[in-house]
Design a protein around this nucleic acid. Structure first.
Lengths: 147, 147
DNA sequence: CCCTTTATTTGAATTATTCAAAAATAGAGA
DNA sequence: TCTCTATTTTTGAATAATTCAAATAAAGGG
């Protein structure tokens, strides 16, 4: 079977994570790379095209395993099923339309930095400050009030 | 029926929001006031105590109506069912334990509604910058690695 | 007090996700 | 290369959170 550079890279990622190299996992990694913020359903139907007979449970398994190994980031915006992305380890955030769910990556918030440091840590060991910007996308600004 | 000051206040809130004044709605407001971050289940069982026969659907209706009227804020942290709180209109955030789900309010150091500005607004009309601090609470720092 | 609108109950469905046992397969070692 | 075992995937079913819809009950303006 032909191996693209990306494929070779994905194999190394899986191996380094201690996960076996399977077609589903390689395809899932590629898919999320190509379609950031993909939902489980979307990933599921794409996996089915490449690997006939793929089950939804296997899709959840694969995504959970990849997430557990730190190869995928999972985001769960309010009112939406889980989404997955490859950009991990950086400090990027998300901008979501309340009306249609359109989602953009936001490289980093600018300005009022104090918001990214809690005023009282309650003695927690912090590992993430997750920021979601909510609003209305340009399209929904004009269509929201329609009948 | 006796009306406490809080009760009177809640009645005014409902009336001003154009919502009819019902026992369930008054109790739900009181309950969330007394128990910030309460889950639907928690609110449901408490409503049942005060109003025998209350259904889970009515609980969802009441909470959705109050939320729609802007009287309750709904938060939906990843991996948790929806939670409700009375603190609305201020710019406070949340600190959540990844292990046990313990949740604290975090007062934002900076005042206004979206306390942060995205690096690129994508022409969205923003109404909220939601920040969730994730970490491990003191208790889970010691118990997480146990068998 | 009646009537109409709005709430709530009753009963069922949907969506997102997980659990568990059986069958298949990756890949380390003989 | 072949075999064996642990891991992965399928198959089948269950659960949790939430919503939908029709029938009944209650709020509150006239």
């Amino acid at each position: 079977m032909p191996t693209t550079p990306a494929d070779t890279d994905s194999r190394a990622l899986l191996r380094d994570a201690g996960l076996r190299i399977t077609g589903l996992r390689l395809s899932a990694l590629d898919l999320v790379e190509a379609h950031p913020h993909a939902t489980v359903d979307h990933i599921f139907s794409n996996l089915q095209m490449k690997h006939a007979g793929t089950s939804i449970q296997a899709t959840y398994n694969v995504l959970n395993d990849l997430h557990g190994a730190g190869l995928l980031r999972r985001i769960e915006p309010a009112g939406s099923p889980a989404r997955f992305e490859r950009r991990i380890g950086d400090n990027h955030h998300h901008l979501i339309c309340r009306s249609c769910g359109e989602l953009h990556d936001i490289d980093c918030a600018v300005g009022e930095a104090p918001c990214l440091v809690p005023s009282d840590s309650h003695d927690f060991i912090l590992d993430e400050a997750e920021v979601v910007f909510w609003g209305l996308c340009p399209k929904c600004q004009t269509t929201t009030t329609n009948p």
